[in-house]
Amino acid sequence: MSIGESATPLGRVRGLGSAQHGGEHWLTERVTSVALLFLGTWLLASLLMLPKLDQRTLIEWLHAPSGAIPMALFVIIGFRHALDGVKVVVDDYVHEEGSNFALNTLFLFAALAGGAIALFALARIAFGSVA
């Protein structure tokens, strides 16, 4: 049976290689997931180990490099991983090209805006004076 007569869609595309950036996207999603495995665990453990969860304690924690640097990584990698993951969901359920492009672009802008706001807030804490 030639490839063109293959019974399944998968059979028709196998061996043709990647169409766009799927391979890179797939790998990035997994690399960021492993990073978030560590950073997410760090974030939760840090919050649980703080003596209090009041504003002063939290600012002191994020003012120090030991808090600010992993938090910056968590924000950047977290938004990237969310963007990659939501794109998979959009691509799976929204097939019309215009809507697909519009939604993916909207979420790209949302991730960039959210990430910028979170990093700005973190920078203000990290480089500001401790309240």
Partner: peptide, 29 residues
């Protein structure tokens, strides 16, 4: 998938609000 979408929108949304409030002074926090 469902938890991934929840974390992307609610999770990162609250994280961002939390960091911004934390950096904006006692009233915002």
């Amino acid at each position: 998938r469902a938890t991934g979408v929840a974390l992307s929108f609610a999770g990162l949304g609250i994280l961002t609000w939390w960091l911004f409030a934390l950096s904006s002074g006692p009233e915002a926090y």
